[in-house]
């Protein structure tokens, strides 16, 4: 039983570490903009959080700086892709390279140094007493609890509110919104900045909650996993959470199977999460299931009033 609790609570932590970025990317892509720079922005978030925490010993301030870092990067990306209408794939790659390099450069002084200030686990009163579930879900850190609130809110926002309707229209056909008198550019700016802010928080989760250190390139591909999960989830935050949990569950399981199933090459377990992703991707987006995909029709297309 302890084993199951350990695997599942590990899966929750893993899921949350990619969910912030995943939700950010979902909103960005729903607005018709593809941001490939997730990994770079996560690294900037991870670095800025650690640097601030290291120098000020103030976690709240660190998170504020993380959010600002994300927002500034978002503004740059939005300026390039919305105002200047540059190619989103190229700009995304530029953000990726910029974030990876700049975070390494700015974080050099505190690389590998102990921060000793992190989001520790806070068992929630009453809820954490529930057998099994309490240990899995309610003995986590603050950022995990915030995600519990954020996830239903994000889903509700997209599917049940007027703003969500506009957001979906923005990704499908921005011209219609423009004709209806909505400010397409301002909305895209807003969602891009929201997205990059969330990505930066994901990075800070890795460096200030999961571990407590800054090292160059420490997110080690999580940004890409978040990016892939968005397509995998059909741009739906609830499905996104399931995907992230599945991924976290399988990679935690693999570690345990090494011990409990000796004799099987460990590379098979290490490859499992990726194999599972491919299988689920085929099932969820394969041609045989439905002709219509949930991909926003205007995704990765710059909106230009003059060329409608």
């Amino acid at each position: 039983m302890n084993l199951i609790v350990a695997i599942l609570s590990g899966a929750v932590v893993y899921a949350v570490s990619v969910l912030y970025a995943g939700i950010g990317e979902t909103f960005t892509e729903r607005s018709g903009v593809m941001n490939l720079g997730v990994e770079g922005i996560m690294l900037m978030g991870a670095m800025s959080g650690c640097v601030t925490a290291f120098h000020t010993r103030n976690l709240a301030l660190a998170m504020l700086i993380v959010i600002l870092t994300g927002a500034v990067l978002g503004l740059i990306f939005a300026f390039l892709t919305v105002t200047l209408q540059s190619d989103q794939t190229v700009c995304g790659m530029a953000m990726l390279i910029l974030g990876t390099g700049l975070s390494g450069f700015l974080g050099e002084d505190i690389a590998s140094k102990p921060i000793n200030l992190k989001f520790t686990k806070i068992p929630l009163p009453v809820l954490s007493e529930i057998p099994i579930i309490g240990d899995i879900l309610f003995n986590q850190n603050l950022l995990v609890y915030i995600m519990y609130l954020l996830l239903p809110l994000a889903t509700f926002y997209i599917y049940k509110t007027r703003w969500g309707l506009k957001l979906r229209a923005l990704g499908e056909n921005p011209a219609v919104l423009d004709a209806a008198g909505e400010n397409v550019f301002a909305m895209r700016y807003g969602y891009i900045v929201f997205g990059t802010t969330m990505m930066a928080i994901s990075g800070a989760f890795v460096s200030l909650a999961q571990t407590n250190v800054w090292q160059e390139g420490m997110t080690a591909g999580k940004g890409w996993i978040a990016f892939a999960l968005v397509a995998f989830s059909s741009w739906n935050p609830a499905t996104l959470a399931l995907g992230a949990l599945l991924f976290g569950f399988i990679s935690n399981l693999g570690s345990n199977l090494q011990i409990y199933l000796p004799g099987v090459p460990t590379e098979i377990f290490s490859a499992m999460p990726y194999v599972a992703t491919i299988v689920v991707l085929i099932i969820s987006t394969g041609n045989f299931r439905k002709k219509h995909t949930a991909e926003p029709a205007a995704l990765a297309k710059a909106y230009d009033r003059e060329s409608r």
């Binding site: 570490s17 890795v206 999961q210 420490m218 080690a220 999580k222 990679s251």
Partner: peptide, 8 residues
């Protein structure tokens, strides 16, 4: 180098 796998 993979923080997740190492700590798991």
């Amino acid at each position: 180098y993979d923080l997740d796998i190492e700590s798991t």
